[in-house]
Design a protein around this nucleic acid. Structure first.
Length: 589
RNA sequence: GGGGUCGUGGUGCAGCUGGUUAGCACAUCGGCCUGUCAAGCCGAAGGUCGCGGGUUCGAGCCCCGUCGGCCCCGCCA
């Protein structure tokens, strides 16, 4: 490299005219007119047009340049002739008249286009991730990610929080997600686990007196992937002492307010709306409703049980629920469209979908005749339906019904164009139950995690009636995605032990797995609580991406592999020997 | 573990109910062109259709298996 760069490719303007400059970057585009040659030089700050005239001493060499070559140009900033400016480019008023050129590195023709919208398939993008990341869209996503991370750091620091790092090699814990295990060489036969979250550490930091902690931290869960789930992901982890739920809400709302203002220039009303878990489940069928649109679930069991429609009557009699949503203006759906919807619902486990058209104050369609006038009016009132609407009804076990209708609600909103993608909807979900019955494990499991505090007056019921115990937990839902979740923690040892009991964790196991925490709780643990953000998901929404992979520099595929470097891979026999490990054929297990 | 979907020149896609030399766009290479900005025009090269097996006179197209990408269910406190 012969010269020192004087400017980036995004900063030259009319103010720099006549200056001698040195730019370095990648050839984004080459337009060879036979005489004059234009090169778009690209770096992460932008694009600058280089002008090479036939009389230039670098003309012959410039002819050889190809896309993605790395080059340095020395030249003079000139104003573009009238009518030749490019308003789409920050540097569009000027161009650099090349006087000297140094090729810093030639490049193979890339396997896909870096510029333009002919986007390659995702597996190819992942294999050549370093090329994919050159694309403007990906650069913008990672800039957004940095901005929000930086903003969060500043915000928490200004609010007197300390960023403290916690270990990546920790003790494996039962409950929750499957751990990634790391074999120990020094303690042969033993394993570390990578943290699913720094949950216990941040609680120990509270006990240590580091009131107001935060950390932007990598977490690991060895579970199957989704568009919004990676085996390693990042949390903004927060914990505070001597606080109540409201203190957490206030801090988080302040952060979200600032993030939305400074990234999307959106002002959001505070305080954020709140919805109890029960109400969310009743109204939307899910604990993370997308409230950018309405379309509520309406339980009409009470109305239909006295109708003449056998399916409904029997369903209600057998303890099932009949509920539905009202699809506005869909009465014009053809028989086929209706059948398709029913099939769609069956595919998701519902027994079917019963579809009723709404006329002028009446119900129409084959089912309508089973409803008398009064019942029909009650139905229409319940759904606040109008003529031309379509009622989509489901008769099933409550939880299944909710699951199906929640999905149907989202699907119909999409089809009807009810989702305003410019809109931001933030809702706190509160009043979660502490436990959830697990059919599979035949015991209660923690809905949130086993360190979540019960509501004080429910502590006694932890042993007698766990299903009714309320948790001091909360989630923050953004446009139907859970972006943060937290709780006030258990800070008393006796309550923590009750929790383990309720989860059928024996005192021995509790001692073995969580003895350190139980002991710590007995050395003066302050009341404390906090929250953790799914940082990648947050960025995904802010960047308008459909997948978390697009906001992670080097993500894994759906089968948790890295197509670029080939991880995971086999290791040398010697490495296994050192660790005291031996591979077994799957058939021998 | 299960379900769905995709896999065609370097890339993105098309390929009718299975039937002659598998199309298009971009990229690449060459030529022309002094003002373009994802330059333009002309021309060329480049694929046997992820892989294996099967059905058939004949398969990119049908069937079975397998590998890989993506989406979903289970799972993810």
């Amino acid at each position: 490299m012969k010269w020192k760069r004087t400017h980036t490719c995004g900063e030259l303007s009319a103010n720099n005219i006549d200056e001698n400059v040195v730019l370095m970057g990648w050839v984004a585009s080459r337009r060879d007119h036979g005489g004059i040659i234009f090169i778009d030089l690209r770096d992460r700050w932008g694009l600058t047009q280089i002008n090479i005239r036939p009389e230039s001493s670098v003309y012959e060499e410039a002819k050889k340049l190809r896309n993605e070559w790395v080059v340095a140009f020395k030249g003079i900033v000139e104003s573009r002739p009238d009518g030749m400016t490019n308003a789409n480019l920050a540097t569009g008023e000027i161009e650099v008249m090349a006087t000297e050129l140094e090729v810093l590195n030639a490049a193979l023709t890339p396997p896909f286009n870096i510029v333009g919208d002919n986007v390659a398939s995702e597996d190819l993008r992942l294999k050549y991730r370093y090329l994919d990341l050159r694309r403007q869209e990906m650069q913008q996503n990672l800039v957004m990610r940095h901005k929000v991370a930086q903003l969060a750091r500043n915000y928490f620091s200004e609010n007197d929080f300390l960023e403290i790092e916690t270990p990546c090699l920790m003790k494996s814990t039962p409950e929750g997600a499957r751990d990634f295990l790391v074999p120990s060489r020094l303690s042969r036969g033993k394993f570390y686990a990578l943290p699913q979250s720094p949950q216990t550490y941040k609680q120990l930091l509270m006990i240590a007196g580091f009131d107001r902690y935060f950390q932007i931290v990598r977490c690991f869960r060895d579970e199957d992937l989704r568009a919004d789930r990676q085996p390693e992901f990042t949390q903004i982890d927060v914990e505070m002492s001597f606080i109540h739920e409201e203190d957490v809400f206030a801090i988080v709302e302040g952060l979200m307010e600032r993030i939305l203002r400074e990234t999307l220039d959106i002002e959001i009303p505070r305080p954020f709306s709140r919805l109890s878990y029960d109400e969310a489940m009743r109204t939307y069928g899910t604990d993370r409703p997308d409230r950018r649109f309405d379309l509520p679930l309406v339980d009409v069991s009470g109305i239909v049980k006295s109708s003449g429609y056998g399916i409904f009557v029997q369903a209600v009699a057998s303890g099932k629920t009949v509920a539905g949503i009202c699809a506005p203006g869909c009465a014009s759906y053809s028989r086929k469209q209706q059948d398709d919807l029913a099939a769609w619902a069956r595919q998701r486990g519902a027994a079917g979908l019963i579809i009723v058209k709404v006329g002028a104050g009446t119900l129409e369609g084959s089912v309508a005749k089973y409803f008398d006038e009064q019942q029909a009016a009650a139905m229409i009132a319940a759904f606040q339906a109008r003529e031309g609407d379509l009622l989509l009804l489901c008769a099933d076990e409550r939880d299944l019904m909710r699951q199906v209708l929640a999905e149907l609600r989202g699907e119909m909103a999409k089809r009807l164009g009810l989702i305003d993608d410019q809109k931001i909807s933030l809702t706190w979900i509160v009043d979660f139950p502490l436990f959830e019955w697990s059919q599979e494990r035949n015991r209660y499991v923690a809905l949130h995690h086993p360190f979540t505090s019960p509501v004080a007056e429910d502590v006694e019921k932890m042993t007698t009636d766990p299903g009714t115990v309320r948790a001091r937990a909360y989630d923050l839902v953004l446009n139907g995605l859970e972006i943060a979740g937290g709780s006030i923690r258990i800070s008393r040892q006796d309550v923590q032990q009750k929790m383990f009991q309720a989860l059928k964790i024996s005192p021995q196991e509790a001692e073995q797995k969580f003895g350190f925490l139980l002991e710590a709780l007995s050395y003066g643990a302050p009341p404390h609580g906090g929250i953790a953000f799914g940082f990648d998901r947050l960025i995904m929404i802010l960047a308008g991406c459909q997948s978390i992979r697009d906001v992670i520099a080097f993500p894994k595929t759906a089968s948790a592999t890295s197509l670029m470097d080939g991880a995971p891979s086999e290791v040398d026999a010697e490495q296994l020997i050192e660790l005291g490990l031996q591979m077994k054929e799957r058939s021998l297990l």
